[in-house]
Write a protein that binds this DNA or RNA. Sequence first.
DNA 1: GCATTATAGAACCTTCTAGTTCTGGAACTG
DNA 2: CAGTTCCAGAACTAGAAGGTTCTATAATGC
Lengths: 118, 118
Amino acid sequence: MMATDQLTRTFAALADPTRRAILTTLRERGEASVTELATPFDLTPRAISKHISVLESAGLVSRGRDAQRRPSRLRVDPLVEVDAWLEDYRAVWEHRFTALEADLDADNTPTDDSEESS
Amino acid sequence: MMATDQLTRTFAALADPTRRAILTTLRERGEASVTELATPFDLTPRAISKHISVLESAGLVSRGRDAQRRPSRLRVDPLVEVDAWLEDYRAVWEHRFTALEADLDADNTPTDDSEESS
DNA sequence: GCATTATAGAACCTTCTAGTTCTGGAACTG
DNA sequence: CAGTTCCAGAACTAGAAGGTTCTATAATGC
């Protein structure tokens, strides 16, 4: 209904600890099948399979074929997009940090451009 | 039900274009009331108010008091946490980039440590 | 061909989400 | 005080999310 854009799908996919754990495993191991990915969790393989589908829809994972196995691999492109999205906000907190530094350097003369510590 | 951790709440809050747009406005304008934030959207002020509540629960926004207005301000701490979470993945794509560079430098001798272009 | 393994489809349930409307309270304006 | 403005609480709804189980299919091993 929301014609979900890429960034929205990415954030939605990341908003689940199980899925983030799957990504961590893939980052560390390179690739893994559904059953391999399922072992650490108290969930049915089917549930893990569905989580992988969500990750795949978000472009965070691609699947290959190895006999019956459908090994998943990490794809970082959506994360690069998140990184880019963060850029403008990163500027905010770095500005605040340097503003604080400036205050210290200037021996307790607080700047007053309408923002505080965050 | 899921005892949602901070990162999960943050990603869930960011997984909505309206909420991300609100954050953008706050980043640009410094602060804004519910009615001010509502104007660009085809939504009732109440809906925007609820979005702000979600952002506030995720720690992405704090609210002050100015007469009847409850101006919201951006708080970047959860975004810093996202940035930190990204760090390990950033290493992945930077490694892949430098690996590609190395391949080019080595005059088309592909590395074979089990990863390709992503 | 038969049994086994790995996975996806289908149906179902329960909980959460994003929105609405209507009501009410708190703070300003005159 | 009366009216207005800004906002949150309450109740409701439709649909999405996350899980289950049971069934089906595809590939391998014998």
